[in-house]
């Protein structure tokens, strides 16, 4: 059984419990063990990085130092945590002076970070460690007929080239295709949703989010699948505000990609935290209610049943 150090981050413990629940459920089903980093702290997020550099790197590195005690990769589902942790990793590797400064701060708490941790995103783990071919064998409820707009957001594919292309990532598309879903044409898959501008410069962020929803709706998507808690928050919770501001009538369900995968793997909706979302995806609920097909569970795949 593959083991990973799990870094949930603050938002997965509060406003986005559904992401946390579905990540854990899917990992368990696919035979990966997520071991939460003990006594982790907030990563500092994007806003801190832009304001105080060394402090933000030091608090991010504390988590990496804690994770370094075990020979496991760190899995960070929140896009912001993922970027900040990988950025801290990269900066310390490239700038020795910075590395010394940060480690002198860590030494105050008796910690040291040597730079030996790999930071990964669940999407990366699912496609590259587990593999779509294996995931396919676990499918109990094929997502036939579900039209998904895959929204990657900014921070898992940029700034450095990671596990996927920066302009046209396809890992999530491949994943859903192997689960039997239909990926709609969604050219805005890496366009910004507004991020934290939603609190500091609302009118701009509302426009950006509205454009995304519009694009998904026009291309006939039943739901948007996302990898980022902040994108989910902006697109889902602010839909009321967007409707008021632009006179639109969006009721687009925004799901975490792990929730969609979870349904296909036959995990029930409560465990995946889908009931915590504001908008219900009727098509996905239909699939969840359908009878399960016998799954291979790791053995060669039985052909997907086309509906």
């Amino acid at each position: 059984m593959q083991q990973y150090s799990y870094y949930p981050g603050c938002s997965l413990h509060s406003a986005h419990k559904g992401y946390d629940m579905s990540c854990r459920a899917v990992a368990e089903k696919l035979g990966c063990e997520l071991i939460e980093i003990e006594d982790w702290n907030c990563c500092g997020a994007t806003i801190y990085m832009s304001v105080k550099e060394i402090t933000s790197l030091a608090i991010a590195s504390r988590n990496l130092a804690l994770a370094e005690q075990y020979p496991r990769d760190v899995v960070a589902p929140c896009s912001s945590c993922f970027t900040v942790l990988s950025k801290a990793n990269r900066y310390l590797k490239n700038n020795r002076e910075l590395d010394q400064k940060v480690n002198s701060c860590l030494a105050e708490a008796g910690l040291h970070y040597g730079g030996g941790v790999r930071v990964r995103h669940p999407l990366d783990v699912l496609t590259n460690d587990v593999g779509t071919e294996i995931i396919r064998t676990y499918v109990e409820k094929p997502l036939a007929g579900l039209k998904i707009a895959n929204y990657y957001g900014c921070q898992i594919v940029r700034p450095e080239r990671g596990f996927d292309d920066r302009e046209n990532p396809t890992t999530m598309d491949d994943l859903f295709e192997s689960l039997g879903a239909e990926n709609v044409y969604f050219p805005m898959k890496v366009r910004c949703c507004g991020g934290m501008l939603m609190t500091t410069y609302e009118e701009v962020a509302l426009k950006l989010s509205k454009e995304l929803l519009e694009c998904a709706l026009e291309n006939g998507a039943d739901c948007i699948a996302t990898t980022c808690p902040l994108c989910q928050m902006n697109l889902e919770s602010y839909q009321d505000k967007i409707n008021r501001a632009f006179g639109s009538k969006f009721e687009m369900p925004i799901l975490f990609f792990t929730q969609v995968i979870g349904v296909a793997l036959g995990i029930d909706e409560k465990t995946l935290g889908i009931d915590k979302n504001f908008y219900r995806c009727k098509k996905l609920e239909e699939i969840a209610r359908s009878t399960a097909v016998a799954a291979g569970n790791g053995k060669p795949a039985p052909e997907l049943v086309e509906a």
């Binding site: 994007t46 832009s50 900014c154 921070q155 940029r158 700034p159 920066r166 302009e167 890496v190 366009r191 910004c192 507004g194 991020g195 934290m196 501008l197 500091t200 410069y201 701009v204 962020a205 950006l208």
Partner: peptide, 12 residues
């Protein structure tokens, strides 16, 4: 400088 949403589109 405060309008930037840190999406890194320019940088890539």
């Amino acid at each position: 400088i405060w309008t930037c949403a840190s999406c890194y589109a320019c940088q890539t």
